[in-house]
């Protein structure tokens, strides 16, 4: 029995999510618009219209599917912001990207043909923008990828655009490379990272359906915790009260277990 308990308590180890080094944070809002640039994507192996569909699949299959995070990427139509020949920072500094928006497009500004894409995020107070660019250069490796991998590449760059950095475990989407693996789901590091940046705030099974559950899904610094944002509010404190009352009536057998 002791061996079993020892095994269980020392078996689980958490690895590390990281944040985008440009900002070290996420967007101020949990609902973020994704706008598509009209710049030609042919060099990446697809049309601009197909690129929009890939971005939508990347958002829905990966980041919008995280049950513990309240992130909603809303993929809009193809806009009129041409990004041909411009770097990420050129575009961000142009002031053309609306607040709370990720601009996604293709161009040929990458120095290395092995780079499939990149994303940069910028925040000024609560106003954040990001630019995601897929490499459509003549030697881009993007056309050589299958559709599933293309979606994973775009999802990876969306991860950077919403504030995440890389992770060190290769099965996670936010690992630096997609080669040599089949990416179908987020890994636990990815899930923890997006949950850290965008805590769950869905009232579906809490605040409207079961109002007694109280406050849910807010993002709090622990040092600011007080009674008003205690999870589950009254019901949670009641549960703790009931359990504490039970502890006071512990039988001797249980006390021996812990002594």
């Amino acid at each position: 029995m002791r061996a079993l308990i020892f095994t269980i308590f020392f078996a689980s180890q958490l690895f590390a999510s990281t944040l985008n080094p440009n900002t070290g944070r996420g967007f101020a809002k949990n609902e973020i618009n994704v706008l598509i640039s009209p710049t030609d994507c042919t060099g990446a192996g697809f049309s601009t219209a197909t690129f929009r569909d890939l971005v939508e699949d990347a958002a829905d299959d990966y980041w919008n599917a995280v049950a513990t995070a309240d992130l909603q990427l809303k993929v809009k139509g193809i806009g009129n912001i041409d990004i041909a020949g411009q770097s990420h920072n050129d575009i961000l500094n142009s002031g053309l990207v609306p607040n709370n928006t990720i601009l996604a497009g293709c161009n040929q500004t990458f120095a290395s043909s092995t780079t499939l894409g990149g994303a940069v995020m910028k925040c000024n107070g609560d106003n954040c923008q990001a630019v995601l660019i897929i490499n459509s250069g003549s030697e881009s490796a993007m056309p050589d990828q299958d559709r599933n991998t293309q979606i994973a590449v775009i999802a990876h760059e969306l991860g950077h655009a919403i504030g995440l950095g890389h992770t060190e475990l290769s099965h996670n989407l936010m690992y630096y490379s997609v080669s040599g693996k089949t990416q179908t789901w987020l890994g636990q590091d990815d899930i923890d990272g997006v949950t850290y940046l965008y805590p769950y705030d869905e009232p579906a099974l809490g605040c409207d359906f079961l109002p007694i559950l109280g406050a849910m899904g807010t993002i709090n610094d622990i040092s600011n915790d007080d009674d008003s944002n205690f999870p589950g509010g009254f019901m949670a404190s009641l549960l703790i009260g009931i359990l504490l009352a039970g502890v006071f009536s512990l039988p001797k057998s249980l006390k021996k277990l812990f002594v």
């Binding site: 590390a16 999510s17 990281t18 944040l19 985008n20 080094p21 070290g24 049950a67 513990t68 995070a69 290395s112 092995t114 780079t115 950095g165 890389h166 630096y176 990272g193 949950t195 850290y196 805590p199 769950y200 869905e202 099974l205 809490g206 079961l210 559950l213 406050a215 849910m216 899904g217 807010t218 993002i219 709090n220 610094d221 622990i222 040092s223 915790d225 999870p231 589950g232």
Partner: peptide, 19 residues
């Protein structure tokens, strides 16, 4: 990619509640 980058580590504790 072909090099290494310093990524920002998680810092202050953050809570999320779900049911």
């Amino acid at each position: 990619g072909d090099s290494y980058t310093d990524y920002t580590a998680l810092s202050s504790p953050r809570d999320s509640y779900y049911t």
